[in-house]
Design a protein around this nucleic acid. Structure first.
Lengths: 207, 207, 207, 207
DNA sequence: GATGAATGAGTGTTCATTCAT
DNA sequence: AATGAATGAACACTCATTCAT
């Protein structure tokens, strides 16, 4: 997948952080160059242009956003447990790739650039398929409700997480999370449990 | 609240759309000026600077984002119905203020500018309080589960919506929504119902 | 013709000299700005871009390159005298517009830029027509040879002058012209006479 | 004369064409390198710098621009015929070396670079000497006029040709020369005859 | 109160050249 | 001998802002 050298990787990492923190337009190649300790010309030299750097970055990182949980489906545990595991893993995965999600969120809604997001679509399809399979299994066993709109489950999981993280300062305040570690812990514990509970309730509860 | 003249309102409207579409950094005051058919110098003249325009915009629009549902609480209907009504109203309200949400989402996570978002915090607190009251009512009647993390309900509602809308193209494709109207309709019908169902299940279902 | 303000005229003059001396590509807008004592941004501001400055310059100056000798044709002197007067005036005119000729010579043969030279074509056509009329007059009076290729007369006049001027250093040396004044004088006297003599011989001499 | 290897020759050829077409400043070493299918570093490596490449090119090509017509002088034909032959040969020679003439024309008038053009001066002196000898022969036989400014004959020949070629598009249009071949043929026939006629008239006609 | 003209700082990019290999 | 990687300097241009009127 990666035919990037050490310096290129360094540039990609720095760019990812900056694009996430201050946006693509808010990031100058001089800032990237300084932070990555490379010459300004290197970005054009390596990637062609600032915009192509973004494209390269997205392509480079997007593959790692797929849920590689093929074996989860075949585990000998109840579907509800699979869902729990999946959500926990999903959230942890989003959390890891938070920067890229931030970048993509902006680019998806921006009418400014037209970057190729086919790879991202692929990832979303893969993840959706995985969820769908587990749901179907639970439905065939009569454990889950029949009328589940599977396509709208990722929005709940991802959306809740992203929104929670976007409003970090607010939630740190009202939930009395005094530092970043506490916030991170809250995500991996309370928020995860909350989302698990929510999805489980939706799957099981007959309305 | 508004001591803005006609031209200023026009600028704010144009700015809101552009900031939402291409971001703050991606928007030039020349673009705003051209679209609003005013002189370039007017933005600095009226608002002080581009950044202060953003602040003025946020302040100007944020008040309208509060859920004005004081009377809903006192309506003589079951708490579960109140929740349903609240969610429908909430989503419709977010949908109306979509541009501003987009802007705020970026600014909240951006480390670039330090704009005063106290008013937004206030709105969030108000909305949270409203939800909390209805939940408590339901709980006191033994209709809702006791252990509800109320603070995490808005993330589900807003987050799901925002994520759904951010990935508009993707969902239009997989849900076969052929135009913008169909997409809008899907939000106000299917997505709303889905979120209502999710929250209701969470409130009622004992895990 | 000119809707340029004082500063714009200044820029055009400086640009003309520099484009002629070191070429368009050899001239930087910084050099122009410094020499014209204006801000770098002014060139883009006034003319749009460096290339558009060139176009504006050509358009601005080209009209002055037409031979305004309508009355010469109606003067009551022999055609041969008209030719003499025309050549003297022509050379003096080219000499005055030397910079622009230099620029145009390069642009005409350059495959790099595609600037609109219709106005220049017009000028050439006008000048050619004027010469043609005088020649025809001389021919109808039996003074000039009948088979004159009129279109090839300007190349002799202009070409000789340009080539002479291009090789200024060389001709200064072999003709012992010790300074610029002497060189200029040689052009207006000896070279002019030489070209007049050449054209006259061609028109009169039967081969 | 040439101690250049195959690759160097290739570079020189490519450079000559590009310098003529888009100018020295308009040509990048990357373009040369790509067209000559060599590494970018090779130009500096072989020639020292881009500027030194130009000098090497001029030196390399300039020797071939001398009129090698020593035997013409001793041919047993009338001086006027010698002049005719010389002009035809001269024009054909200039036409062959057109690219180099273009380059030199720009460099001669450019105040940017200071390249050594002694070799070119030598060539011009040689050519002038040759013409001078033939003229003197004609004068001593009483065939040519006595007061001929020999130094101003090359400007007529070269200048006319160069100017004609510079304005290729214009003359193709007004002379109805539909393609490059027709244009080339016109040069070798009509233009050559025109210049021959002009010079002959000047030499013979008593004014 | 309102604006056209003007500006300095900063943008992404390209340049000829160098250097380690 | 030859080259891919790398670089500092310079490029044309755009930016938000200011100021005299």
């Amino acid at each position: 997948m990666t035919d990037f050298n050490e310096k290129q990787i360094e540039i990609l990492q720095v760019a990812e952080q900056l694009f996430a923190e201050v946006g693509f337009d808010g990031t100058t190649i001089r800032t990237i160059a300084k932070k990555a300790a490379i010459n300004i010309a290197m970005i054009s030299y390596y990637f062609g242009s600032k915009e192509k750097l973004l494209e390269a970055l997205v392509l480079h990182r997007i593959s790692g956003m797929s849920l590689d949980l093929e074996n989860l489906y075949h585990e000998n545990i109840a579907p509800i447990e699979k869902i729990e595991k999946l959500i926990a893993y999903y959230i942890q995965r989003i959390n890891t790739n938070r920067c890229m999600y931030q970048i993509l969120h902006f680019e998806l809604s921006s009418k400014k650039r037209e970057i190729n997001l086919d790879a991202f679509t692929q990832v979303k399809n893969n993840n959706l398929k995985l969820i769908e399979n587990i749901i179907k299994e639970g439905q065939s066993q009569g454990l889950f409700q029949p009328n589940i709109n599977v396509a709208l489950l990722p929005p709940i999981i991802i959306g809740s997480f992203i929104h929670f993280h976007m409003n970090k300062k607010y939630y740190q305040q009202i939930l009395n999370l005094k530092n970043d570690t506490a916030f991170e812990q809250y995500i991996l514990n309370d928020l995860t449990i909350h989302i698990q509970k929510t999805i489980k309730a939706l799957l099981i509860y007959a309305n």
